[in-house]
Computed example of a mutant assay.
Amino acid sequence: MMQDAAPATMTDEETAAFAEQVFDCARRGDADMLTRLLGSGLPVNLRNGKGDTLLMLASYHGHFEAVQVLLKHGADPLLANDNGQMPIAGAAFKGDLPMIKLLMKHGVPVDAAAADGRTALMLAAMFNRSEILEFLLAQGADPSLQDARGATALVAAQTMGAVDAAARLQALAG
């Protein structure tokens, strides 16, 4: 059983093990434990060795309640990890429309992108996630935006063979 807070006298090894348990709570979606830890002073925007925040891990793994807890405690939904990925892009990759809606409700712009320039629309297009594509377009997502390599959502869809997404975006461009 995990303790609610790290004791002040922990060794580096113990601290690393405790931190790993904290990130596992986010991966598993343990909203109750996250609530207790955050109430005990755990920094809400804590990052692991890959730059993933607790919010990134909880949202990527589809844990709606844990994400709500983290957002309620002030987690920044615009923090990207070391790979330049943001929680909304991870949710689009995973095909999690309710998570995208939750993140947007908490201030994430529809065209939010990190250093790689990839928006949720681009990821939805790449993986032929039609429902997400339509939702993002309806929210004002800009299909003409380009990622860091100059690819638009249409190019991403074409590159990945996402036929439905490519056809929908081609119709918009036409």
Results as ranks from 00 to 15, higher is better:
Val67Leu: 04
Ala113Ile: 05
Leu57Val: 02
Asn45Cys: 06
Ala89Met: 12
Ala112Lys: 10
Leu54Lys: 03
Lys101Pro: 08
Asn45Trp: 01
Ser59Phe: 02
Gln3Gly: 10
Lys101Glu: 09
His63Phe: 00
Ala26Lys: 08
Arg27Ser: 12
Gln85Trp: 12
Glu14Trp: 05
Ala75Val: 00
Met10Lys: 07
Met99Asp: 10
Gly107Glu: 02
Asp32Asn: 14
Lys105Gly: 09
Arg36Gln: 13
Leu70Pro: 10
Thr35Tyr: 09
Asp82Asn: 14
Lys72Arg: 15
Val44His: 00
Gln68Lys: 15
Gly51Lys: 00
Ala115Gly: 12
Ala115Ile: 13
Asn81Phe: 00
Pro77Met: 04
Thr15Ile: 13
Val69Lys: 07
Gly90Pro: 01
Gly95Glu: 01
Ala80His: 02
Gly39Ile: 04
Met56Ile: 10
Gln3Ser: 09
Asp4Trp: 04
Ala120Gln: 03
His61Cys: 12
Leu70Ser: 01
Asp76Ser: 02
Thr53Trp: 00
Leu102Ala: 07
Val69Ser: 05
Leu78Asn: 06
Asp32Ile: 12
His106Leu: 03
Gly51His: 01
Ala16Tyr: 14
Cys25Leu: 14
Asp30Gly: 11
Thr35Pro: 15
Glu13Ser: 13
Ser59Lys: 01
Ala6Lys: 04
Ser40Asp: 13
Arg36Glu: 11
Phe18Val: 13
Asp82His: 10
Leu103Glu: 00
Asp32Glu: 15
Thr119Phe: 06
Ala113Lys: 13
Lys105Ala: 12
